[in-house]
């Protein structure tokens, strides 16, 4: 029975080229004094992601029998963390975009109880080396504006998938995670509405090391419309019981 303090949830779909490096990156950068588990959530990949992750022997693997999309995969990981009573959960993308050396900072902020949820932002400060495409930057600015309008708070990187949750937040999110496609901005609204304290901290992100992003340009229009709509609806809902 897995148990421990920190659960690092790595959702992935067809990341056979990246997954080993991602696991190694986490293992190498996680402080040994903590108890932690790397949990790879394999969202029904058609390549050998699940096998690769399993063969490292360093990660626990959740194999989803149907493809649920990123939201459903993350929620499965959060359910795991809630069920096995982890104190903290970290969401870490399986494509190698995030840097595991940031995890410790995230956990420190949670431990000092400055926030319930920590979001890694590429745009908090100028120092980042992350080069995004122009259209993607326009999209991120637009969401920043929309979320500011609805919450009165500024989130510089609402689409960032690099997040850490304390126990209260992870229990809540395991039940109410917006588990469809592209959940990140919606999640911010949901958390804010339910009085969770969200904190952004700057972190660098890499470009993809391999594999294919889930967000191709012809999906971008759908993404903008769907996420805007989902954000508005999330804002219109009452807080959960």
């Amino acid at each position: 029975m897995p148990a421990g303090e920190i659960c690092i949830i790595v959702p992935c779909y067809n990341e056979q080229e990246n997954i080993k490096n991602v696991i190694d990156d986490i293992i190498d950068n996680t402080p040994s004094k903590e108890k932690w588990t790397v949990l790879v959530v394999n969202d029904c990949s058609i390549d050998s992601t699940g096998f690769e992750a399993n063969s490292t022997g360093k990660a626990d693997v959740l194999d989803l029998p149907c493809n649920l999309g990123i939201g459903g995969a993350v929620q499965a990981g959060l359910k795991y963390a809630a069920r096995y009573n982890y104190d903290y959960a970290v969401k870490f993308d399986g494509d190698g975009q995030h840097l595991a050396k940031n995890i410790e900072t995230f956990i420190q902020e949670l431990k000092s109880d400055k926030a319930d949820v920590v979001v890694g932002s590429r745009f908090c400060t100028k120092h980042n080396g992350f080069k995004s495409t122009f259209m993607r930057q326009v999209g991120i600015k637009y969401f920043q504006w929309l979320i500011k309008l609805l919450t009165g708070k500024t989130f510089t990187d609402s689409t960032s998938g690099f997040r850490a949750y304390n126990k209260k937040a992870l229990k809540f999110m395991s039940k109410h995670y917006p588990a469809f496609d592209y959940p990140e901005p919606e999640e911010i609204i949901l958390l804010n509405k339910n009085k969770f304290r969200i904190m952004e901290i700057p972190c660098e992100m890499r470009k993809r090391q391999g594999g294919v992003s889930c967000l191709s340009s012809n999906r971008a229009v759908y993404y903008m419309i769907k996420v805007s709509f989902a954000i508005l609806m999330a804002a219109a809902r009452k807080p959960e019981e």
């Binding site: 029975m1 897995p2 148990a3 421990g4 293992i27 040994s32 108890k35 932690w36 588990t37 022997g57 360093k58 990660a59 626990d60 693997v61 959740l62 194999d63 029998p65 795991y80």
Partner: peptide, 15 residues
């Protein structure tokens, strides 16, 4: 499925 298979696995730093 994870629970059923996980019993036999030995992961680092996992109680």
């Amino acid at each position: 499925k994870n629970k059923a298979q996980g019993c036999s696995k030995d992961l680092p730093n996992k109680e």
